[in-house]
Design a protein around this nucleic acid. Sequence first.
DNA 1: AACGATCCCTGTTGGC
DNA 2: TGCCAACAGGGATCGT
Length: 283
Amino acid sequence: MPELPEVETTRRHLVPLVVGRTVVGVEIAGRTARRNSGPADVVSRLTGRTVRSVGRRGKFLLAPLDSGDTWVVHLGMSGRIRTAGTGEPRELHTRFVAVLDDGAEVRLVDPRTFGFVAVLDPDELARALRAIGPDALDELPSAAALGGRLAGRRAPVKALLLDQRIVSGLGNIYADEVLHRAGIHPLRSAGSLRPGELEALREAITSVLAEGIAAGGTSLDDLAYLLPDGRAGAFGARLAVYGRDGQPCRSCGTAVERVVVSGRSSHYCPRCQPPRRERAKAS
DNA sequence: AACGATCCCTGTTGGC
DNA sequence: TGCCAACAGGGATCGT
């Protein structure tokens, strides 16, 4: 599923292909643009515009245009960007196509249609960005500030890691991986984390995301997220707990367990991530 | 306000 | 073997 590392990998592939290019044609099918005023709006506000850069905030791809608007793409749950030359066959579930002035195409392939494309003016963009918290990679708060964001919250820490208003970019896969690396049980009350645990959490977010990006993201066998050139990401083979319930923890060999948190499956090692903090002990 | 539940959507999976 | 309910999940929304 596209989370921060997948979106960042996609962004890096797009930069050399689209920055400085002008969009000469746009095709939209289905409900891809449902969060904007409509497909026609996206077509008219994107066609003829030149892409200035490609950025990212959380799971949002943000491409400022020469018009002052910003081209926004969210991959949702099953979306991925596919770049190809005009004339190359389109994959099933291609929902959106932007044709560039050099003949290349940027396509959104999205079987479950939870992704969307929009073109926002500065006010709309500001409103959209206010709704999400700092980027989990580029703007990750200090451990103390992270603690401040979780203070007083009784919800499971896993649930709040998925809440994009706390920090943006983590999804179900990387949240599980982060908690495992930090040695924190997913059901721990978020506000109960101690300073040392917050430090571990922060470090885990940074290192897991960096490794995910370095591996080109996570491609699972089913609804595979793929790189824009069609290749698979390699982080799936390195997952410590996600999707591995019943299999031995890569750290200690204990069977990985699964519990539902906030309606999402959560995978954890009961030994590396004990439900309650062990007593402080010298050593 | 916080938080859990529900819904959207469709390809895949698992049980019978 | 075939059918179909259950499942997957990012995010919006609703109810408590």
